[in-house]
Amino acid sequence: MSIRLLVCDDSGFARKQLIKALPPDWNFQISQAANGLEGLEVIRKGHGDVVLLDLTMPEMDGYGVLQAIRDEGLQARVVVVSGDVQEQAVQRVLGLGALAFLQKPVDPLDLRKTLREHGLYKPAVAKPAATPAAEPATQASVAIPVAEAPNAEQVSALQDLSKIGFRDTFREITNVAMGRAGALLARVLNVFVKLPIPNVNIFEVGELSMALADAQRGGAVSAVCQGYISGGIAGEALLIFHDSSFRDIAKLMQHEGEVDNNTQLELLMDLSSLLIGACLNGFAEQLDIRFSQGHPIILGQHCNFDDLLRVNQTRWKKTLAVELSYSIEHHSVNFDLLFLFTEDSVPRLQHKIQYLME
């Protein structure tokens, strides 16, 4: 009997990776959804016996889908595949009824093992070679690996995803890097970090202020900048921290005493070292490169975001901007992490990720 499989992820590139990782000898009919609401409708129509579900999506996230499946008593067996690798994220999805959690980018062997363990997939076994007359008749049969060529359903689904662009692919790479950084921050502070959907765009610096208007919430900000470079790929990372968040983050980092300017500088440097380094490592691992990082510098303290950009606009000019707006659950802590790749870096990045897109 054919399994009705749903792959639900807002990234076409992520869906393509998952579909390529599926066992080619698995008998399934595949549907795709680009957000939680679309996915839920597919499940309600009975086309989601098995669901491979992302967590960070627009319209409705994976947690919302799992909650709706439980509340409505829908028949769907869910394996979460996400870049949000926080321990609390894993425990929450299992508590909501997910069968298992796999981290992105998914390993095909881990996916097959998980599907087998939960009775969703049974590998095809070829007939063993004829037993020689001299051998006992009770000789155990031997499983012969099946061919790894994609089956018809995989081929059709991959053809539908044949025109995935650079922006979608790089956004998914960012999503994985962001999740690694969020998980590290969650462990250090013993909190749950609310991860955003990354924004990836190419801007003139004059457009950057308008595009990042959300970074101005809460009034004054303070910012740290750190450069990075690797074989034709270069840029600067900015941690923009909202001044209203300093008191809460000081408590989480177990600082005692007054939160003065020196303390705020220490907190900024500690956070920037942790987050920027973890994100860059996530980028580097996926792109098979190694970044050299410069020393962090203070761009400004207690200033308006527009002023911060205006003072530094000659540094950035046209840029590939990656925006991540983090927050911490149950705490008044908000900060933005920006990666501003130079215009000259884009062709090199396109070349590096081309093999991932194919």
Results as ranks from 00 to 15, higher is better:
Tyr63Arg: 07
Arg116Glu: 15
Ala149Gln: 13
Gly97Lys: 08
Val79Met: 00
Ser162Ala: 15
Asp61Met: 05
Val79Lys: 01
Pro132Arg: 06
Leu99Val: 04
Thr138Phe: 04
Gly62His: 08
Thr138Ile: 10
Pro108Glu: 08
Glu87Trp: 07
Val81Gln: 13
Pro145Asn: 04
Val93Gln: 07
Glu72Val: 00
Ala100Ile: 09
Val90Ile: 10
Val142Gln: 06
Leu66Cys: 14
Ile164Thr: 12
Leu55Val: 03
Lys122Glu: 15
Gly83Asp: 10
Leu99Gln: 11
Ala126Ile: 01
Leu99Arg: 05
Arg116Ser: 13
Gln88Gly: 06
Ala134His: 12
Ala124Met: 00
Arg77Asp: 10
Ala140Asn: 00
Gln75Ala: 13
Pro123Ser: 05
Ala152Thr: 07
Gly64Cys: 11
Lys122Arg: 09
Ser162Trp: 08
Phe101Gly: 05
Leu99Ile: 08
Leu120Cys: 09
Val65Gly: 09
Lys127Phe: 11
Arg112Glu: 14
Arg77Val: 03
Gln159Thr: 05
Thr131Ala: 06
Ala134Leu: 15
Gly119Val: 07
Leu94Met: 10
Phe166Ile: 12
Val65Tyr: 00
Ala133Arg: 03
Ile144Pro: 11
Ala68Trp: 08
Thr56Asp: 14
Leu66Trp: 06
Gln91Ala: 13
Val106Gln: 12
Glu148Leu: 13
Val78Glu: 05
Lys163Thr: 05
Tyr121Asn: 08
Pro123Asn: 01
Ser82Glu: 02
Val155Glu: 15
Ser141Asp: 12
Leu102Trp: 01
Glu72Lys: 04
Gly119Met: 13
Pro105Ile: 06
Val85Trp: 04
Leu161Phe: 12
Ala152Gln: 04
Ala134Glu: 08
Pro105Arg: 03
Phe101Cys: 02
Ala130Lys: 14
Phe101Ala: 05
Pro123Trp: 02
Thr131Asp: 05
Leu99Cys: 05
Ala143Leu: 08
Lys127Asn: 11
Pro145Gln: 13
Leu109Tyr: 05
Gly62Ala: 10
Thr131Val: 14
Pro150Met: 09
His118Tyr: 14
Ala129Phe: 11
Thr56Cys: 12
Asp61Thr: 04
Leu120Arg: 06
Glu72His: 09
Thr131Ile: 15
Ile144Cys: 09
Gln75Glu: 13
Val125Thr: 12
Lys127Val: 04
Asp160Pro: 00
Asp71Lys: 11
Glu117Gly: 06
His118Gln: 10
Gly83Lys: 04
Val146Leu: 07
Met57Ile: 09
Ala76Ile: 09
Gly83Glu: 10
Ala100Val: 01
Gln88Ser: 07
Lys163Glu: 15
Leu102Asn: 00
Leu109Val: 10
Ser82Val: 01
Tyr121Phe: 12
Asp71Phe: 10
Lys127Gly: 05
Leu161Thr: 08
Ser82His: 00
Val90Gly: 01
Val125Trp: 04
Ala137Cys: 14
Val146Asn: 02
Leu96Ile: 03
Leu55Ser: 14
Val81Glu: 14
Phe101Arg: 14
Leu111Gln: 06
Arg167Tyr: 08
Asp110Arg: 14
Leu158Thr: 04
Asp110Thr: 03
Ala130Asn: 09
Gly73Tyr: 11
Ser141Gln: 15
Leu96Trp: 00
Ala100Phe: 05
Ala100Asn: 06
Gln159Phe: 02
Gln103Lys: 10
Pro128Ala: 14
Leu115Gly: 15
Val85Met: 11
Asp160Val: 07
Lys104Pro: 11
Ala68Arg: 13
